[in-house]
Design a protein around this nucleic acid. Sequence first.
DNA 1: CAAAAATATTTTAGGCATGAAGTAATCGGC
DNA 2: GCCGATTACTTCATGCCTAAAATATTTTTG
Lengths: 152, 152
Amino acid sequence: MTTSKDRLRLWLRLLKVTRGIEARLRDALRREFETTLPRFDMMAALSRHPEGLKMSALSGVLRVSNGNVTGIADRLTAEGLAERVPVPGDRRAMMVRLTDAGVAEFTRQAQAHEGWIDDMLGDFSADEARTLATRLMRLAETQDKEEMTNAL
Amino acid sequence: MTTSKDRLRLWLRLLKVTRGIEARLRDALRREFETTLPRFDMMAALSRHPEGLKMSALSGVLRVSNGNVTGIADRLTAEGLAERVPVPGDRRAMMVRLTDAGVAEFTRQAQAHEGWIDDMLGDFSADEARTLATRLMRLAETQDKEEMTNAL
DNA sequence: CAAAAATATTTTAGGCATGAAGTAATCGGC
DNA sequence: GCCGATTACTTCATGCCTAAAATATTTTTG
């Protein structure tokens, strides 16, 4: 009967926990590496694509707006961690990729990041973590499906 | 052995799901009510305290910075949804509370909000929602405890 | 092929977020 | 009763974020 209240409560908890972890990550990234979560996310995406990603692809992967990607890429580039490379055959497009310095820096950051997460989610056993991750994936898939439907 | 990888994966899923739902909420709030998630959050907090909240209390409840609260309260006030009331006996402090119009508007928004969440979390049964919410609460408590420790 | 449509990116305007600095009022100890 | 410390709030500088407009370059189409 009051299922919707239970779901609402679940959502509020989900939000609280996620925001809490995000806030701690932000702090740690700032303290230890003088960087931010958006920069880290972009570098993570780029590190999974050593050949580079087009701006629009990056926008899609990170699920943030085009304009936003421009700004973050600008800052990473200014710091020498990423670079823009023209795409042969399409003068509109730009590839972004990590520089060697960017790869080195991200390697350090990613290692620390994994440790922090491990600490913060410490009271989930490996099993529990896997089960919950699977459950959440199912939810994410439902979401994506609806998104697709809406886009028609 | 690779428990940390499982936890990392759990975190990435948690983040993806939460951000996805947040993005949809943002859209819906914008489309249906010309408002934003931060405004909604503040109104929700105020609606739980009809007598009003001091700026600093609001900052604590919403877990955002003082300066941030100032801006959002400014905008709600400009729209006639909230008002600042001086605190008798302390000329530094200000109470913020919903106006009648604010209460009426929030009532409509909250109802829609509950419906959206119910849709988005539709594939959790009431039971499943309760179980997961409980599990997340335990995690949130551990977090708060650590925060306390760090503050010493 | 030229005009129109589509694509890739940047720019712009406005809101949200932080930490730090600034302003004003209150409190505590003497 | 005064003065330094604390408290409450706002302002500032900077970055993140979005949607929408602008720019530049393909691609499509009549």
